[in-house]
Amino acid sequence: MGALKPVPETREDGFFATRIDALINWGRKNSLWPMPLGLSCCGIELMAMLGPKFDLARFGAEAARFSPRQCDLLVVAGTLTWKMAAAARLVYDQMPEPKWVIAMGVCSSTGGMYDSYAVVQGVDSILPVDVYVPGCPPRPDAVIDAILKLQTKIERERPLARILAGPGVSDERGTGARTYQPNDAVRKSVYDLHPHDPRARKG
């Protein structure tokens, strides 16, 4: 059970007591559905990671879908250009919440060696990133490690606090607390809601 931590004395009767946060997080973290945004060579490593040799299915995250509507983990794998940035942001916006982002490789983390007019200098200038993976490209093990790190991050979230707090109080990640401090441009974009989001229709 791991993070669920049932109260021991209640287990023998066929049920146990736990926190509902722990239950929700347990479900979320072990069934991440990645959206592979493979933009360059990192995409190849991403395929290797999903394949049988590295077998991401061990961590419940092998169900890659090519529709953002069915995904909750955006893996930005490769060099994001400014020409592509709008498409990447649209993909992120179309993903239902809760959603997480992994910046895979140095290009998507910082722009990498492309100190250029054409390349986004880190996808965190347009998307809120949860885990950065260094490497050019990173080995599949490194990305699996990033997913494990993301799982521990999801474990610490408080989804119930967000539901009880109501719309507009907690951030869009459902953590109930700000867990990251991106730059101004991102912080602004994080709080803007998609029109299909129920919280956008409150007024």
């Binding site: 400014w82 940035a85 709008a86 942001r89 100190d115 250029s116 007019y117 054409a118 986004v120 200038s125 347009i126």
Partner: peptide, 10 residues
Amino acid sequence: HQGIEPDRLY
């Protein structure tokens, strides 16, 4: 080489 307002269009 770093561009002039590279993020303007975005």
